[in-house]
Design a protein around this nucleic acid. Structure first.
Length: 103
DNA sequence: CGAATGACCAAGC
DNA sequence: GGCTTGGCCATTC
């Protein structure tokens, strides 16, 4: 359960702020949340507060979908991203140079 | 309260 | 040049 003003809430807020049709990385979200080295936490937070944010707009540093949650498979993320007009390769790779968002 | 966890990143071999 | 290891640090049980 999200405690007010927790790091998790910040992560959620930032992920929610990602513009439509854009994606960002865990490291970027962590940095915006106040922890440049908390990339791992971002993944963990999204795992705990899974349906609280558009996690499909968040990928790892390589622009690759690192999701492991069975409830949110890579195939689903790919579909969601494509719905927003984001090109996702068959290997779940995204062009951060084109769709990357850094706030 | 203490120990374990995690959807990452960067450096090292 | 690709794979392995260690370190980050809040959240959770």
């Amino acid at each position: 359960m999200r405690q007010a003003l927790s790091f998790g809430d910040k992560v959620i807020e930032i992920v929610k702020k990602i513009p439509y049709g854009k994606v960002t990385t865990y490291g970027t979200v962590a940095a915006l949340a106040g922890l440049p080295r908390g990339a791992r936490l971002v993944g963990g937070i999204l795992h705990f507060d899974i349906d609280e944010a558009p996690w499909h707009r968040v990928v790892n540093r390589h622009g690759f979908i690192s999701t492991k949650c069975l409830e949110h498979p890579q195939a689903l993320q790919k579909a969601l991203l494509q719905q927003e007009g984001i090109a996702v390769s068959k290997d779940f790779m995204i062009d951060l140079q084109k769709y990357g968002w850094f706030g």
